Simulated assay, not measured.
Amino acid sequence: MNIGAVDHIEFYVGDAQQSAFFLCTAFGFRVCGQIGPETGCPDRRSLLLRQGGIDLVLTSALTAEHPAARYVAEHGDGVANIAFEVPDAAQAFALAVQRGATPVEEPTTHRKGDCEVVTAGVLGFGDVGHRLVQRGADRAEFLPGVMDMFAEDPDGTEHLVHTVDHAAVCLPAGQLAGTIAFYEKVFGFSVIFEEFIEVGEQAMDSQVVQSASGKITFTLIQPVAGRKPGQIDDFLARHGGAGVQHLALLADDIVAAVPALESRGVRFLETPGAYYDELEGRMGRPDLRIEDLRRTNVLVDQDHWGQVFQIFTRSLHVRDTFFWEVIDRHGARTFGSGNIKALYEAVAREKTTA
Rank of each mutant, 00 (worst) to 15 (best):
I3M: 02
G4R: 02
G4V: 08
H8W: 02
I9M: 04
E10P: 03
V13R: 00
A16M: 08
Q18G: 09
S19I: 09
A20H: 06
F22I: 04
F22C: 00
F22A: 11
L23D: 03
C24R: 09
C24A: 07
F27C: 12
F29E: 01
R30A: 10
I35K: 13
C41R: 13
D43E: 10
S46L: 09
L49A: 06
L49M: 05
R50K: 14
G52E: 12
G52Q: 14
G52D: 12
G53M: 15
L56E: 00
L56F: 15
V57E: 03
T59H: 06
A64G: 04
E65C: 00
H66N: 13
R70F: 00
R70M: 08
E74C: 02
F84A: 04
R99K: 04
A101L: 05
T102K: 03
T102Y: 00
E105F: 05
E105D: 09
E105C: 01
G113C: 14
C115M: 05
E116D: 03
E116P: 10
V117T: 11
A120C: 03
G121L: 02
V128N: 12
G129D: 13
V133D: 02
Q134I: 08
R135I: 01
D155A: 14
D155S: 13
G156K: 08
G156Y: 09
T157G: 10
E158R: 15
V161R: 02
H166E: 10
A167V: 08
C170Y: 02
P172N: 11
P172C: 10
Q175K: 15
F182C: 00
Y183N: 00
E184P: 00
K185N: 12
V186N: 05
G188H: 10
E195F: 02
Q202K: 15
M204V: 11
M204P: 02
D205Q: 09
A212D: 15
F218W: 12
A225C: 01
G226Y: 03
Q231A: 08
Q231V: 13
D234M: 14
D234P: 00
L236T: 03
A242L: 01
V244R: 03
Q245C: 09
L247R: 11
L249C: 14
A251Q: 13
A256S: 11
A257H: 02
V258T: 05
P259H: 07
P259K: 01
P259T: 06
S263V: 00
G265S: 08
R267Y: 06
R267P: 04
E280T: 13
R282K: 06
G284A: 05
G284T: 08
G284L: 05
D287W: 02
R289L: 15
R294I: 08
T296N: 08
Q302S: 11
D303K: 01
Q307A: 12
Q307F: 12
V308R: 10
F309C: 14
Q310A: 11
F312W: 11
T313I: 03
R314S: 03
H317Y: 11
R319L: 11
F323I: 09
V326Y: 03
I327T: 15
H330D: 12
H330E: 14
A332Q: 07
T334H: 01
T334Y: 03
T334K: 00
T334I: 01
G338N: 15
K341M: 04
Y344R: 13
A346F: 07
A348E: 15
T352E: 12
A354Q: 13
